[in-house]
Measured scan of single mutants.
Amino acid sequence: MTTFKLIINGKTLKGEITIEAVDAAEAEKIFKQYANDNGIDGEWTYDDATKTDTVTE
C-alpha cells in the first residue's frame, strides 16, 4: 500500500485527506467519490512525485 493525499481547494470546503491505496488509480477513484459526496466539482491535478491529487473549484 502507498500513501496518497488529496488537497481540497473548494469554495466552501478546504483541507486535505490522506489514504492508503494500492495505486494512483485506486486513490483517484476514492478521492473523486469523496469529492462527489461532498459536492466538490472542480479542476483535478495529480503530482506523481508527491502522490498528491489536488481539486480546485
Rank of each mutant, 00 (worst) to 15 (best):
E57S: 06
I30G: 01
V22D: 01
E20Y: 14
T12K: 10
T54L: 08
Q33H: 04
E28Y: 13
A49C: 14
T45S: 11
D37M: 11
M1V: 09
D37P: 02
A25G: 06
V55W: 05
A21N: 05
E43N: 09
A21Q: 03
I30K: 05
I19K: 00
T18I: 12
Y46G: 02
N36R: 14
M1Q: 06
E57D: 08
A25P: 02
L6E: 03
I19Y: 02
D47T: 09
E28A: 11
L13H: 13
T56N: 07
F4M: 00
A49W: 07
A25R: 09
E20R: 11
T3G: 02
I17W: 11
F31C: 05
D53W: 15
M1N: 07
I17V: 07
N36S: 14
A35M: 13
E20V: 15
D37G: 02
D37W: 05
I8M: 03
D48W: 11
Y46V: 04
E20W: 14
T56Y: 08
A21T: 03
T3E: 09
V22H: 12
K29M: 09
A49Y: 09
F4Y: 12
L13V: 12
F31V: 01
W44D: 01
I7A: 02
T3A: 05
K51A: 08
G10A: 06
T50V: 06
A49G: 07
K29S: 07
I7W: 04
K51L: 10
K5M: 09
I8R: 00
Y34H: 03
T3M: 11
K32L: 08
I40S: 03
V22E: 07
K11F: 13
K5Q: 03
E57P: 05
I8Q: 00
D41F: 14
I8H: 00
T18P: 00
N9Y: 09
E16H: 07
F4C: 09
A35H: 03
K29I: 09
E20T: 11
Y34Q: 01
T18N: 03
T56E: 08
F4A: 01
Q33C: 13
I40T: 02
E26H: 09
N9W: 10
E43I: 13
D23G: 03
A49S: 11
K51R: 10
E20G: 05
A35Q: 02
A35Y: 06
E26S: 11
K14L: 09
T18H: 09
W44V: 02
T56Q: 06
I40Q: 02
I19C: 15
D47G: 04
K29N: 03
L6K: 00
G15T: 13
T3N: 03
D41M: 13
K11E: 11
G42T: 05
K5C: 15
K32F: 04
T18Q: 05
K5L: 08
K11W: 13
M1A: 05
D23E: 01
D53E: 15
T50C: 14
I8Y: 08
K11C: 15
T45P: 03
T54W: 07
G39H: 08
N9V: 12
E57G: 06
T45Q: 07
I19H: 00
I17H: 01
I19P: 00
T18K: 04
K32I: 10
D23Q: 02
E57L: 12
T50R: 05
N36H: 14
D41T: 13
T3Q: 11
K29G: 04
K14D: 06
F31G: 01
F31A: 01
A21I: 04
E20S: 10
D53F: 15
I17N: 00
M1D: 02
F31P: 01
A24S: 06
V55D: 05
L6Y: 11
E26W: 06
D37A: 10
V55Y: 06
I8N: 00
K5S: 03
A25V: 10
N38P: 02
K32H: 09
G42A: 04
Y46P: 02
E20M: 14
I17S: 00
L6T: 01
G42L: 08
L13E: 08
E43R: 07
T3I: 13
I19V: 09
K14H: 09
V55S: 07
A24V: 09
T45M: 08
I40M: 03
I30D: 00
G39Q: 04
A27L: 05
K29R: 14
G42Q: 04
K14N: 04
E26I: 04
E28V: 09
T2E: 07
T52C: 12
E16V: 13
I8D: 01
T50I: 07
T52G: 04
G15C: 15
E16P: 02
D23T: 10
A27P: 00
N36Y: 14
I40E: 02
N36F: 15
K5I: 13
G15V: 15
L13S: 10
G15F: 15
N36T: 14
G39R: 04
I7H: 04
V22M: 12
T56G: 07
T2S: 09
Q33T: 06
